[in-house]
């Protein structure tokens, strides 16, 4: 059973084709990396898959729902975290999680338990009543991730979740991703960091709106005859 099935997914803005007939599948519980230079079409693809943007042609099934007709059901079943830190700075950690939890209609009592559980996982219980603006960026990113999976979505879209974060926090962040994936959450992540790409189960490399390469990190390295994903990317760009 696939969590994500994109079929000839296309988005045009005027004459410009941002996403050009992409096809791929992601299995349940898989960590799928979305690589590519800026402007390659990653963000547009994610927007379509999360129900923010209607495709020009083609379609995709997200958690078994059609993005064209069932965007409401999709919204209930996905989580999202963007490159820009996107919680409210003038709300406390707890208030932020409460806000998003309430929007997803998690019952009040259960919500409180879930928030405390996830804060415990993050080791941030003491910060529950701190304003989000006053905690370090790395913690904010972890918090944003925890908030994005609070309603237990089937799929989480992470749009460059670790940009601007130091390597130690990045590693911790990936631990959280693995933890979520081990619970069966499908994760689609875009990143600039090639070392992070190695952590993914499978990756795809996009350019000019098309998926040029797709496979496990090992397969891609073998295919291009290099040792690291970074080299794969460099060689691919030169080609």
């Amino acid at each position: 059973m696939y969590s994500i099935e994109a079929n000839q997914l296309t988005k045009q803005f005027g004459d410009f084709t941002a996403v050009d007939h992409i096809c791929f599948e992601v299995r349940e519980g898989e960590i799928f990396g979305f690589l590519g230079a800026n402007g390659a079409g990653k963000t547009t693809a994610i927007k379509m898959m999360s129900g923010l943007l209607l495709p020009t042609s083609g379609t995709a099934m997200i958690a078994g729902y059609d993005i064209r007709t069932q965007s409401k059901l999709i919204k209930r079943n996905i989580g999202y975290m963007s490159q820009k830190f996107s919680l409210y700075g003038d709300l406390t950690v707890f208030e932020n999680m409460q806000l998003f939890g309430t929007i997803y209609k998690i019952p009040r009592k259960e919500l409180k338990e879930r928030i405390m559980d996830s804060l415990r996982e993050l080791d941030m219980e003491k910060q529950a009543n701190t304003l989000v603006d006053s905690i370090p960026l790395g913690w904010k990113q972890k918090l944003a991730f925890a908030t994005a999976i609070l309603h237990r979505p089937k799929i989480v879209f992470l749009d460059e979740p670790t940009s601007g974060v130091d390597p130690i926090v990045r590693r911790e962040f990936w631990k959280l991703i693995y933890l979520a994936a081990s619970k069966g959450v499908t994760i689609l992540v875009t990143t600039h960091y090639m070392d992070e790409a190695e952590y993914c189960n499978r990756i795809s490399i996009m350019a000019e709106g098309q998926i040029k390469l797709i496979g496990t990190p090992g397969e891609l390295k073998q295919q291009m005859g290099v040792d690291t994903i970074n080299d794969v990317f460099v060689k691919f760009v030169k080609r």
Binding site: L52, K75, R76, S82, F85, S86, F100, I103, Y104
Partner: peptide
Amino acid sequence: ETGTMRMLLITPV
């Protein structure tokens, strides 16, 4: 500007 709008739009609200 802060990106929270997209967060809100992605939720079912």
